[in-house]
Amino acid sequence: MKQPIRAALPILFAFVLVGTGLLLAGSLSPVSGAPPQAAAAAQATPKLTATAIQIDLLDPGDLPIPPEFRVAVYEYLVAAVERSNKFQHVYRSGNHGAAGGNDLVILKTTAQAFTKGSQKQREVTTVSGATSIKIHAEFTDRSGKVLLEKDLEGKVRFFGGNLDATNDFAKKLFTLIGQTF
C-alpha cells in the first residue's frame, strides 16, 4: 500500500510546482501588462511644460462650503504642487511676482458637489457619515485657454476629520500633475 503512495509523490509534487508557477504567472501578468498601457496613455496626452504656476482660491459656486474647507483645499493644493517639484515658481493667488512669469499656468478649482459628514457617525457606524467634495480642476494659460481639465473627488470614509477630504483631493491632484507635467 505504501509503494503506490511513494510512487505518486513525485507526480503530486510536480502538480503543485506547476500550479504554483501558473498562479505566479497569473498574478504577475497584469503588472507586466501595465507599462504598455501607461505608455500608451502617456503618448495619447502630451506632457505640458511650464516653469511657473499660480494657484487660485477655490470657487465655491453656489454650494454652502464652509470657509475652513475652502482654505484647506487651497492650502493642501499649494503644498501638493510644491511637493511635486514640477515648477520653478509656485505663486499663491494674488502674488505680485506671478505677473512677470513667461510660461505661467493657472490652476483654477471650482466646487461641484459637497457633502459634510460626521466623524462620530463614521466611526460608530462605519457605513454612513462620509465627507466628500467634488472639484473641477482646470489648468489654463495666461490668456485663459484651457490646457487640461479634470473632475476630482476627495473623500473621507472611515477614520479622520472632515477636512481630510480636502487632503485626499490634493493627493489626487498631485498624481494628476505628476502624469501631466
Binding site: 470657509p67 482654505v71 484647506a72 492650502e75 499663491r92 493667488s93 494674488g94 502674488n95 462620530k120 460608530v124
Partner: peptide, 25 residues
Amino acid sequence: ALFSHGTEVLTVEYTDADGGFHGAI
C-alpha cells in the same frame, strides 16, 4: 467613538508680504 467634545474652528485669511493669499485653520 461616541465620546467627543465641542470645539470651535477659527479660519483666518491673510496675505504675505508679496500679496499672496494664505489661510490658517
